[in-house]
Design a protein around this nucleic acid. Structure first.
Lengths: 276, 276
DNA sequence: GTTCCGCATGAATCGATAG
DNA sequence: ACTATCGATTCATGCGGAA
């Protein structure tokens, strides 16, 4: 059987079965935000936390097969609170993925600046999510220069959130470490980012209720692919990853089990502006 | 044998053995930054990452015993990179601590705003660490008002006049809710924080190899204790936790296996200003 | 054109109530 | 007892209209 890669398409179906028709070692980047564990069956996906790992693993086996050896798999996920505790399915998943052959290269933090409001007696608002980076081998493609930050913006965002006590502390040590660092920055326009991403969720877009902001897949697509590379989102939902990939002149493949989401994604992609 | 609690002291020894002499259910908060695996071989003897969990667990069993049922255990830790991968000892430790009887209540992110510049071909600067919260039971002491932060600027316009949607949302609630809510919002300038902490590292403390800014234990001491409560740091190092606890009028107990660190801590505590 | 202000809405979680 | 549903709580963002 000749495996054919359905370039620039949104495919309906369970990604585990859809990917079975793909050739080995053909995808440059997998970036996805799978349905989060939830005991309520009505919501999208609705996999029970206790069964999440077993549900995910066979799909991840296909991801491993279709990914190029130099490719990267980015998994955006966050564990729910169950019975007053953080559930352990995400960290169990990390261990099981390693047994499957994945390398757990890095864990990026997505800091959600506008997290969901609420107050509880025993915890604060959850304002971050994991972006887990997995690879097939230690040598993988990474284009760090593509995500460099203008120095001005970086310094400004760094200083914006300083509390009063922090300001005092910074001034108290200005003679030692801080001043030395500043001298290194002088004359340089761009800086490399860190493994903490500060992005707000997109709440005001009424039509596209994207679960993650376009800036999130955009950042990883910049970092791990070049133009013409193939980006896969096996849980593409309303199509954010595919839209961004197309706009950035990458080739995309999106998969979703719900036909209504596929249709929504195809419509959005058609309407999306190709010129950045 | 009568167990006696050595209040406001720095004790030399392995915390596992030192704590064995402590009574049950006597500590309000354990906050610590244990020696990281392998990283500080010269100072702390360097526990190999593969043996870290086994090394830590018996000590954690003592923490569990001496902690009050309403108390909290905060573990500041970050896994190091081993052979190109994030090592799994921290997430394995979480699973094992739960088996030991701990509840994994929350994971705070300490975002290190001024992480030191550096460049590697396959990763960016690591600018965050985990602050894992464990408890003995679901009901624990938490003083959220003590760590409130200034609200964003948006509040100024919103609170000037209540929006229509806010009125509708409020009216949909129980009849008695509306009036109470308004009174709660009017004049409010402070908001509750999230589970992401933005703190700069301190570069001044060169003698102890751990980079543990005073603001970190301070935040958790504020959040989980009141004046007079007992704060334990079983890996107290140069004494940051104890100094902060004393300054905040909490009682402290510090333990460290190295006598030179204990001496350093005692000296620093003696010199520390008691009035905040 | 700028700036300001009103407004909807979000991968949430807890505790109480109902089946 | 144990699970499913529902109301209450709360804050930052970007859009669009107004000043």
């Amino acid at each position: 059987m000749t495996h054919h890669l359905p370039i620039n398409q949104i495919l309906q179906g369970d990604c585990e079965q859809v990917l079975a028709t793909f050739p080995d070692n053909s995808i440059d980047l997998i970036v996805t935000s799978p349905p989060y564990a939830d005991r309520r069956k009505k919501t999208y996906g609705g996999i029970h936390p206790d069964h999440y790992v077993e549900w995910f693993l066979p799909k991840a086996a296909e991801f491993l097969r279709v990914l190029k050896p130099t490719g990267t798999f980015i998994l955006n996920i966050k564990e729910r609170v169950v019975n007053g505790e953080r559930h352990t399915y995400v960290i169990e998943l990390i261990l099981r993925l390693r047994e499957q052959g994945w390398l757990w290269t890095e864990e990026f933090i997505w800091h959600k600046k506008n997290s969901y409001p609420g107050k509880w007696p025993n915890r604060f608002r959850d304002s971050w999510e994991r972006c887990l980076q997995f690879n097939k081998q230690r040598q993988f493609n990474m284009y760090q220069e593509a995500v460099m930050i203008p120095m001005g913006d970086w310094a400004r965002s760094r200083l914006r959130r300083l509390s009063e006590t922090d300001k005092v502390r910074d001034e108290s040590k200005v003679n030692s470490g801080f001043g030395k660092n500043v001298s290194n920055w002088l004359g340089r326009k761009m800086a490399y980012p860190t493994n903490v991403l500060h992005l707000a969720t997109e709440t005001s877009n009424r039509k596209h209720s994207a679960v993650f902001p376009a800036a999130l897949p955009e950042w990883f697509i910049k970092l791990f692919t070049q133009e013409g590379d193939i980006v896969l989102d096996p849980f593409v939902g309303s199509g954010t990853t595919a839209i961004v990939a197309k706009r950035m002149k990458r080739r995309y493949i999106g998969i979703d089990i719900h036909e209504e989401y596929c249709e929504m994604a195809r419509t959005s992609i058609g309407a999306a502006i190709t010129t950045l």
